[in-house]
Write a protein that binds this DNA or RNA. Sequence first.
DNA 1: CTAACTCCCTGATAGC
DNA 2: TGCTATCAGGGAGTTA
Length: 274
Amino acid sequence: MPELPEVEVIRRGLLPLVTGQAITSIFCSSKKLRLPIPKQDLLRWIQSQEIIEINRRGKYLIFIFSNDAVMLVHLGMSGKLGIFSQSAPTALHDHLIFKLHNDMQLRFNDPRRFGLIRVFPPGQFSHLDPFKDMGCEPLEHQFSGEYLKRKAGSRLQPIKNFLMDNRMVAGIGNIYANEILFHCGLHPSTPIGSITRPIWQLVAMKTKDVLLRAIECGGSSISDFVNSSGQKGYFQLELTVYGRAGEHCPRCTATIIKQVIGGRSTFFCPNCQK
DNA sequence: CTAACTCCCTGATAGC
DNA sequence: TGCTATCAGGGAGTTA
């Protein structure tokens, strides 16, 4: 389940392999992802164009092409992007394949089809800004305790739901919300309206720490991008609480608890997180 | 206005 | 061994 760090690692892994490459042909499956794959727009605007850069906003990858067309890719729950040789056999659930000028292929594989591919014709991207409601990038300067406090207001919402709300903070999913709150010593149900300025500053700092550390972990396995099994190991980060119900807290002797908060599995140490 | 729920989808796993 | 039930969850949409 790629969240901001995984998406960033994928971006960095792909960059040196695809920038400057023209798309010589495109294969699309007819299966619907979150939305149908825009086959006609891909053929019309992306085919034969060169990849100029790849950016990221939250969990979205933003491919910029030489004609100024833009393709957004969201990996959903199970989406993967990888570079393969032409001779590598295609896999079940390969939904989009770009054949590149250097005879390699960029493949998008997504078993659960929660992913999303969108194409913006040249000049249309900023016009229809799909990120207008998205919150701050947590690794950018303006993401701060002040920002969080302002967004939170006096509402009763549990902080975990708040951190996972992409209108508040971009790119944080269930796993990193759990990890961040552990490192803050905050109970996931803490009402955001009750959180003080210094604690918001702690949240901002720990959010940056956890995400940056995860990106660094992923960076060490970037070489796995070119192989027939796609990228693996971009999940090398040692998770402190997520998925560890019943195990001992690494900081004290208490047992980590699993509880559903906001419809999602939530893991925390009942002793360290108050 | 917020908050809580539903749906989309397949693969891994638990239970029988 | 082989079946079925359950769970995983991002984001959009709907309901309360």
